[in-house]
Design a protein around this nucleic acid. Structure first.
Lengths: 251, 251
DNA sequence: TCACATTTGTCCGTATGTATC
DNA sequence: AGATACATACGGACAAATGTG
């Protein structure tokens, strides 16, 4: 009985700024507004929607936080339609992980299992352009390491590129979200190493970074050779090693 | 070169309302503010932070959309600490799916692979309370079906409960997000069936729903018996069937 | 280089609707 | 039912930032 009353509950209690954001979002979904397009200024939008500027602002705030637009100040600035909202999801995942107190073990385990599966599809579906992107990534990482810099971003990006090569958007999102958390954990944990005696610790981080890049390169070769067994095996031991490193950094 | 200039860029261009939301978010992370606690009213917050109400409002808007607070109108209302962040993530996933034009095939495939892995852990880690929750879920679903209702929510919840039984928060989030999208797809696609001749189509949906519950029950039994092979096999065929149904509904 | 126009960021004051006591 | 407390929304104003000529 009470289940029935729950149907047909909210039909008009939507706040004005929510209507604003929903209308604009709809235009983006329908392709009327495309990435790179600029929305009218807040004052202009206020006129067109016939609401106050404050209401427009709160609506834009929603779209901004959801990743649909960015906002630039100054002349010829204003709200700009973005190409993707995936980064936003990663940020929310970060918050959620912190809130739910997710442990490093859980993170490593899930990453291991999921990326293992993804690799199976990468072997079957990766094309030349995927492999080229992976190679370029490895090369960029090597450049950094030769300059004695850690290649954190590049090494994280490698896993995202792998997910893209699986040709499944869901994998891209999941791997990307997990990678964002791993990246956050890593940078947070290695930050402690930058003490007075940072040269020693620093070069050790670079060394670990180099190890990762070496394995990444081997993985790319295995993918190109369509050597499923080797690729998966490399990937698994690589992920386990990264996991162990994260664990050891915790102390 | 230009890579170096990108370092050390933003240090003080954070907007005031972002500072507000960040300060409050920090208090939540640190446990000072716990779910159920109430924040001061907008006017009071404006006084304490020494900023205008508009600025407070935009800060609260961020927290609301991020899933950290809900806002109640009326007397003794105001901002309430309530973590709905998982719902927020699910909503963003929905947006992302629409924006990135994710196909049903991709969704079904990823779901199949991930929940297959999750089941492996469920077998090892599910305890009595997990199994009891699963049983209760099946029972609730049966109740609905006996009243000739589709048990969409219950059947989606079953998969979330499974993820929880794996004792890994990452799996919970990932499965939950995917389930939310599946739920959206299902309800959107079955909505087309509610035409003038809805009685026939409706009872067919109930029938499909009943099939799902039957398999769910068998899965619970297999988990309780720790029959890994059977549980995984049931799960796999179940997910494939659901996937096929989603596909067939598209036309 | 410098002034200018545009746009966001922030503030104040006020009015209205709504939920609670 | 009335008073109270709160979010919601409006209008006007100025400051700060940013691109343009």
């Amino acid at each position: 009985m009470n289940e029935h009353q729950k149907l047909f509950k909210p039909i008009k209690n939507e706040r004005t700024f929510e209507k604003v954001s929903r209308r604009i979002k709809r235009l983006i979904f329908d392709g009327v507004l495309k990435p790179g397009d600029r929305l009218p200024s807040e004052t202009e939008l206020a006129h067109q929607f016939d609401v106050s500027r404050q209401t427009i602002r709160e609506g834009l705030r929603i779209l901004e936080l959801s990743g649909f637009i960015t906002i630039q100040k100054g002349g010829s600035g204003g709200p700009l339609i973005q190409t993707t909202i995936l980064n936003t999801i990663n940020n929310l995942f970060l918050d959620a992980f912190q809130l739910e107190k997710v442990t490093t073990e859980e993170l490593t385990l899930a990453r291991f299992e999921i990326e293992r599966v993804v690799m199976d599809y990468v072997i079957d579906r990766a094309d030349d352009s995927d492999i080229q992107r992976l190679r370029e990534n490895v090369q960029r990482a090597r450049m950094k390491i030769e300059n004695n810099l850690v290649a954190v971003d590049e090494n994280i990006e490698f896993h995202n590129l792998l997910a893209e090569a699986s040709k499944n958007h869901v994998f891209v999102m999941v791997v990307g979200s997990i990678a964002a958390v791993v990246r956050d954990h890593t940078s947070r944990l290695t930050a402690n190493l930058e003490g007075p005696d940072n040269t020693g610790a620093y070069s050790e981080s670079v060394l670990k970074s180099k190890n990762a890049v070496d394995i990444h390169e081997k993985i790319v070769e295995a993918i190109e050779a369509k050597d499923r067994k080797k690729a998966k095996q490399l990937m698994e031991s690589h992920l386990q090693e990264v996991g162990h490193r994260l664990e050891s950094l915790k102390d």
